[in-house]
Design a protein around this nucleic acid. Structure first.
Ligand SMILES: [Zn+2]
Ligand SMILES: [Zn+2]
Ligand SMILES: [Zn+2]
Ligand SMILES: [Zn+2]
Lengths: 158, 158
DNA sequence: GACGAAATGATATAATATAACACTTCAACA
DNA sequence: TGTTGAAGTGTTATATTATATCATTTCGTC
């Protein structure tokens, strides 16, 4: 059984480094400025594999001594979502880091209600089924939200 | 091509009547009281095939001369969602009426960004794909949110 | 009719998100 | 290298969505 969710003992510092590196690359490729504030917010989002809300980010920023207000956070989030460096989880009003921002994808999100972690899958069967269902009724897809809530493998075991 | 969305010229009064009738039945079967306030909210939701927000419902109630406050609306919504008489669209923070409340289902929602209508599908291929993807990673599903935004057949044609 | 549970009323407030305008930064260009 | 215009951020205010809490009413059961 392959678990989408990262191993308990994994070196999360490497997740963060990798995410930052990819973000730099994507921003550059899009001629977008990965400013200090955007980097701060992005790094905060990547502190865990959980989703984090805008106001949790705001608190974290203020905890770091940054004088930020809600619009600052929402602007950074808008930028990061726009570049698909992070994704918004609609059912949580929260955001989490994408670990494959360099390839276009319609992701599906598995959300564990126990440990709070979010994992992104890109499952072609699911995508195909969605496209087929839409095609059958003449619906032109522009965006999809697929969020699956429950218990991750670890949490289900306990 | 079968369109999920109702025909422009359909008799919407029949949609409302049918929904009300089904709701009565479901409530009774669940030993739940379909009170006046709940019926009002339910009927307002069914005024169209669009999703409607809690505060739009509140305004509509007040427009009818009902002295209602937010909790009144949210309580009615909670009740109706609980019985699956309506569904919440997470990506819109809005609610719309289910037209098959008597059979358990994990629905998928097509949302037209142009006309605002929402249509519910129960597509076994999609459901199966979701279950398979979850099974493959040992994830225990408790709830799914599948929302597909774009243009309905009618709106895509114009 | 008395009782307790469920529903609703009423007030306050929490949580999430955006509008508007001022100021700063930065890259491009003269 | 100074000018300039666009992009980014600061700041204040406010809009939108949702819930906590306690008082009162309604309703079925006894
Ligand atoms: Zn990690
Ligand atoms: Zn978990
Ligand atoms: Zn109708
Ligand atoms: Zn449409």
């Amino acid at each position: 059984m392959t678990d989408l969710f990262p191993d308990k003992g994994h070196d999360h510092g490497r997740c963060i480094d990798s995410a930052l590196h990819q973000a730099e690359t994507v921003a550059e490729a899009n001629n977008a400025r990965f400013t200090d504030m955007r980097r701060r917010v992005f790094t905060l989002i990547w502190q865990s594999h959980k989703a984090i809300t805008a106001y949790e980010l705001l608190d974290a920023l203020q905890g770091e001594g940054v004088r930020a207000q809600p619009p600052t956070v929402y602007r950074a989030l808008e930028f990061l979502v726009g570049l698909r460096l992070i994704h918004r989880i609609e059912s949580l009003n929260a955001y989490f880091g994408c670990d494959m921002p360099d390839c276009e994808h319609l992701g599906q999100y598995f959300i564990c209600r126990n440990c709070g972690r979010v994992a992104e899958a890109v499952n072609e069967d699911m995508s195909r089924a969605v496209r087929a269902a839409a095609g059958a009724v003449g619906f032109k897809i522009e965006a999809t939200t697929i969020e699956i809530k429950g218990l991750c493998h670890d949490c289900a075991a306990h």
